[in-house]
């Protein structure tokens, strides 16, 4: 179980997250959605420890993790796939997967992980994780590194971004499978109806506040009739 208590985050006199309270239970698939700039990625980074909240506490499976480092959270079983995958120089896909699994990883095992995200493994395993990979390829590799960690809490930040239409179907399959295989909490940030459709629960964030939360059917009905400013932020007055 993950519990966020009174999480606030402010930068340049702007309230990015405003007293967030959220409880996420085991074996559930959550999708966070909301307008651009509403604070979704910031919330995910706070859970992973990449950003420090100004106030509030984070409890993960009974442990207060508010003040522990990113790698300590990773060791407790939190995994995070970046919205914008990081590029390296000289580090290969295989290197990253080896780091992620923390144990001996044969090329064959690494290929298996890559095939889960729809990459033809032999072509990619020895490629450097740099700008020579396409946006969609980087995104798939990013997802693969998180799958390789077998986290108890997985956070995917807009995993569908940059993934082509044909592969998108497979991606939703991947998430369904994660949900089946790993008994844990899955949290996906997404704007895609297809992803919203496989959620147990949908959480709507607007201007740093959780404004709505509920099961898929109830939420899908209300979200699309809900007035949201297309320029980001909350509904215009």
């Amino acid at each position: 179980m993950l519990e966020l208590q009174n999480i606030s985050f402010e930068r340049n006199n702007k309230k990015i997250l405003n007293n967030i309270n959220l409880r996420l239970d085991e074996n559930k698939f959550y999708v966070i959605t909301g307008p651009n700039g509403s604070g979704k990625s910031t919330l995910a980074k706070i859970i992973m420890g990449i950003e420090k909240p100004d106030t509030g506490r984070i409890i993960f499976n009974g442990t207060d993790i508010t003040n522990i480092t990113i790698d300590e959270r990773a060791k407790l079983g939190i995994g995070f796939a970046f919205q914008q995958p990081v590029r390296f120089k000289g580090i290969t896909v295989y290197d990253l997967l080896k780091i992620a699994t923390k144990e001996e990883l044969t090329k064959q095992q690494a290929c298996l992980i890559l095939s889960k995200v729809g990459l033809c493994a032999n072509e990619y395993i020895d490629r450097e994780v740099n700008g020579s990979l396409s946006g969609g390829e980087l995104k798939r590799i990013e997802i693969a590194t998180v799958l390789a960690c077998h986290p108890k809490l997985t956070i995917f930040d807009e995993p569908e971004a940059g993934i082509d239409l044909w592969s998108f179907q497979n991606l939703t399959q991947v998430f369904k499978q994660i949900q089946k295989e790993y008994k844990g909490i899955n949290l996906v940030i997404s704007h895609q109806e297809r992803i919203l459709n496989i959620a147990d629960e949908i959480i709507l964030i607007e201007q740093g506040n959780i404004t709505k939360r509920g099961n898929k059917n109830m939420m899908l009905d209300t979200i699309f009739t809900h007035e949201v400013c297309s320029k980001g932020g909350v509904a215009c007055e």
Partner: peptide
């Protein structure tokens, strides 16, 4: 670090790769 390396280990991995 999100993959579980400490800051120092991460630094080494980046330099070794480079």
């Amino acid at each position: 670090m999100t993959l579980g390396l400490t800051e120092k280990e991460a630094e080494e991995a980046i330099i070794n790769g480079f």
